[in-house]
Simulated assay, not measured.
Amino acid sequence: MKHSNDSKAAAGPSQRQLRVGEEIRHVLSDILMRTEFHDPLLAREHLTVSEVRMSPDLKHALVFATVLGQKDIRPLLPALKRVAPYLRAQMAPRLGLRVAPELKFVADEALDEATRINKLLHSPEVTRDLGPDKKD
């Protein structure tokens, strides 16, 4: 017999998780755009938050971030971890939640993956195989 919690987990995030995640994405994007960081690694970068996934209890936010200009964000992740408490404090009054979630930054690799697939699809081997049939 399935418990109701099992079916909820299988169904994906709730509407509330999606709504709060999107709200956090907007607030974080605004803070990152307007804030001058004292960290030299972050001070000169233009960061973008592409997605925020919330835990079911809304206490943890997984933040998918990229750097404009297709630079690798991985070297910046330790700096983002250091400023996460500051960002959380800046977000709290703007969110209207009882508790602002803990932030965990990860590299958003969706664009890299899309670029890799696009290159693969346009490679000579694939183009040859997808080309029109030629009967000899």
Rank of each mutant, 00 (worst) to 15 (best):
D57A: 02
K8A: 10
E36Y: 12
L68I: 14
G21M: 01
E36H: 14
L76C: 05
H46D: 05
M1D: 06
S123P: 10
L121F: 12
L87V: 09
G131E: 09
K2D: 11
E102I: 01
F37V: 04
M33F: 10
T66R: 14
D72S: 15
L28H: 00
R53N: 07
K8N: 09
L80C: 07
K134L: 08
D133S: 01
I24Q: 00
D30S: 03
D108G: 07
A107Q: 09
K104W: 07
V67Q: 04
T127Y: 00
L111F: 14
A43I: 02
H122P: 14
L121S: 05
L41C: 03
I31G: 10
E51A: 12
E23V: 08
M54K: 05
V52P: 04
A110E: 07
A43P: 03
R98Y: 10
F64D: 06
V106A: 06
Q70G: 07
M33A: 08
R82I: 08
V63K: 00
A114I: 14
L47Q: 07
G21T: 02
R88V: 13
G96Q: 05
L95V: 11
E51R: 15
N118F: 15
L121N: 09
K119G: 02
A65S: 00
Q70K: 07
Y86Q: 13
P93L: 11
A9R: 13
L28A: 00
D108S: 05
K2E: 11
E22I: 02
H46Q: 03
K119I: 01
K135L: 13
V83K: 02
S29Q: 12
A65E: 01
D129A: 15
P85D: 15
K8W: 07
R88Q: 15
S7A: 00
P75R: 04
D39G: 08
E36Q: 13
T48V: 09
Q70R: 06
H3E: 10
V126Y: 11
T48W: 00
A100M: 01
M1E: 09
L97I: 02
A84R: 08
A92H: 11
H3P: 00
R74G: 02
E51Y: 11
P132D: 04
G131R: 05
A65N: 01
K104I: 13
E51D: 13
L130W: 07
R19K: 06
L28Q: 01
P78K: 09
K134Q: 07
R34Q: 11
L87T: 12
P56I: 03
P93K: 04
K134P: 00
N118K: 15
L58W: 11
L32K: 03
P56G: 02
Q17I: 06
E51K: 14
E109A: 11
K2S: 10
E23A: 12
L42V: 00
V20N: 04
A100R: 00
K135T: 14
D129L: 15
A107V: 09
D30F: 00
P101V: 01
E45G: 03
V67R: 06
E36I: 14
P124M: 05
I24N: 03
R19N: 03
L121R: 08
P75L: 09
L76E: 09
R25T: 06
S55H: 07
S7N: 01
A10D: 06
A65Q: 00
L42W: 03
I73Q: 14
S14M: 02
S123K: 10
P40K: 12
V126E: 11
L28S: 02
F64H: 13
R88S: 15
S123N: 13
I24F: 02
K71F: 14
S55C: 02
I73Y: 15
L111C: 05
T35A: 06
